[in-house]
Amino acid sequence: MHLATLLLDGANAVLILMLVALGLAIVFGLMNVINLAHGEFLMLGAYVVLAAGQAGLPFWVGLALAPPAVALVGLVAEEVLVRHTYTRLLDTILATWGLSLVLRQAAVLLYGPGSHSVVPPDLGAVTIAGSPYPVYRLVVMAISLTAIAATFALFFRTRFGLAARAVIANRAMASCLGIDTRRLDRWTFAVGAGLAGLAGAAMAPLIAVDPQAGLGWLVPAFLAILVGGLGSIAGPLVGAAGIGGLDSLTAAVASPVWAQLAVFVAAILVIRLRPTGLIARRRRES
């Protein structure tokens, strides 16, 4: 494979993983919820695009519908399920694992266990450094970058973000200062789900859309946020760059299977040796 294509594909994988890890990390960092259903939110995003296509809507409409639709599912899940487990960290793992089972099975019931494909919009290809590259993949990268930038703007340029960062720093104190943590939790979970939905929708034409589509993303995304560290919002991005980049580059020289093994083992070593993550910041225990 051509070097430029290789690097672009690597960048593509890294940016999507960043998007997935970011959603997971804000839910973990702010709400102290370990969301094992995050992969299924991604899977739902891809199914929204599929459903929109089957309803005769253009691809871009499906892509635009997916994040709010998945965010709505997240909102309902938070209200009905997740908020009841807030004080029990390990039970959030179980509750969201149950949610992921139900979402996967719902996809099986609605669309069957088999995989579907979404036709990518025909945008042609451009020649980059002497080899053709599909424009749609460049669009996916642009979508990821925009969403990541928007998330940062949300957290560092808005009142919502200020309140959210206050809750991350010290939940009890933020609550005493009159921040409605209940409302914040609800919206944080929805934003996290929406980011996963966007990632799934953007990736829908590039992957096989099936009920298991989200599972493969969950472990890399978790390793990314643990490697990067939970204390800051930049941590997961660094972790995702490390995990995704190493995976793509090793896959190019060895086989994808050995790449994944090497990456997982390397990530476990990093997590063990630096439990606070590569980008560590002291965090107040609540």
Binding site: I34, L89, L90, I93, V219, F222, L223, L226, V257, Q260, L261, F264, V265, A267, I268, I271, R272, P275
Partner: peptide
Amino acid sequence: FTFAGRGLHGAFFGIVTLALAVVFERLAI
């Protein structure tokens, strides 16, 4: 490996064991 020294706790331990399950499954396959 996971408990020596400062060690990993609770959720971190859970996620590492989850990753290990994927690693062992891949190895067996």
